[in-house]
Design a binder for these strands. Structure first.
Lengths: 215, 215
DNA sequence: TCGGTAAGCTGACGGCATGACAGGACAAGT
DNA sequence: ACTTGTCCTGTCATGCCGTCAGCTTACCGA
């Protein structure tokens, strides 16, 4: 489907063009990490990439458009998050382990991509459907797996039927995302990474199984 | 201490000045609700307030400065969130009720102020200390109360000593804030408000007491 | 009533980002 | 060398930013 990268005016991008395009994306990514979203200007990105603003506009309609592109790249990489949930057992000791690994994987993924993720979060919260969609794409992998896990446990009468699997899964994922997004905040508040994780894992485990974990 | 409102160039604002200032804040608040943060321009705010950009700069150093002002206002109003936690009993039925009311109060507060809150969240996530500080001010009321509640339960051996009260309280509050910020998202994802609340309350209750609630 | 003083507002300006276009540079094939 | 299509940039009109000098308005004491 998207086999060909195209410029704004419809041309097909070749080798060189794709390289420039990628460079622009990388530089934008850097900028997002180092300065507030509101202050990221096309001209700065272009300068940093050693090119001109006009070139930027050849490949992207605007800054948002480019951000979405980066997000799309990241979403692919984020698909691996599913492995943190799918096919895991949530009973006994392995349940606790699963919870710990989920928390761990989530936090490190977020830490690695925090700049773009927080822009996506903003866009989604502001009601932009494109951002919302991509946010779903990243989180859905985990959310859906979690929802299924809960439903499966409900089927075996291990979890209260009153629990709405989707709402619970969504809440857990939202929590992970939020905490991950404010990791630095927690630290400067006196809570260390190492202390954060087990507590999160505890909440995750309970949310899914409805029980305290056996460690 | 801050009995007098001052303009950027040091003058003391009188009746009329304060009115203009407030009008600008109100208009900015409106703008934030209706258009992306990135696109909010000083000139639009000024126009909407029936004044000129120069006037805006008389009262605020920049858009961020004005946002912080709005946030400060809101923080005062948000102090009442403490009542949702302080002096509550977390055992038995009243514990479940407390959890439900906390969730309810939190969600509605967030819904009422979502536009500013999401800007604050962004600023905090980007590492801006001023935004982080105001975010703390709003959330600390709840977080501290929760931390104390947990510690108190730990003192009575009702909660596992392994639990880090601050980390747990912070996680719970972060979750509430995140879910609150994406309420619309949940809805369009097929999860209804009414279904969301009890599941959140469940997680909150467990996080604080370490137990399933008795309803 | 009448200045005097400080508050309040704005027109205007240099500076910079935006976004569009036309045209020049370049690489590849013939 | 010539053609073709990709790739990049100089340039320009437009619009926002942030500041200043200067004008208007309100208040106050004589």
């Amino acid at each position: 489907m998207t086999g060909q990268v195209r410029t704004v005016d419809g041309r097909v991008a070749g080798r060189r063009g794709q390289a420039t395009r990628q460079k622009l994306l990388d530089c934008l990514s850097d900028m997002l990490s180092s300065s507030p979203y509101r202050d990221v200007k096309v001209i700065d990105v272009a300068r940093k990439a050693g090119t001109s603003p006009a070139t930027f506009y050849q490949y992207f309609p605007d800054v948002e458009g480019a951000v979405l592109e980066i997000a799309e790249e990241m979403a692919k990489e984020g698909a691996q998050l599913t492995d943190l949930v799918a096919g895991r057992s949530w009973v006994g000791k392995s349940g606790w382990q699963a919870a710990e690994e989920l928390v761990d994987g989530f936090l490190s993924f977020w830490r690695k991509n925090d700049a773009i993720l927080r822009v996506i979060d903003l866009g989604a919260a502001e009601g932009d459907k494109r951002f919302y969609k991509i946010r779903m794409k990243i989180l859905n992998a985990v959310t859906n797996s979690l929802t299924e896990s809960i439903q499966e446990l409900q089927g075996r009468n291990k979890v209260d039927k009153e629990v709405n699997a989707a709402a619970m899964a969504g809440s857990i994922v939202a929590m992970l995302a939020a905490v991950a997004g404010h990791q630095k905040g927690f630290q400067s508040w006196g809570v260390k990474q190492a202390e954060l994780k087990p507590n999160l894992a505890l909440l995750v485990h309970f949310g899914i199984t409805g029980k305290k974990p056996t460690k």
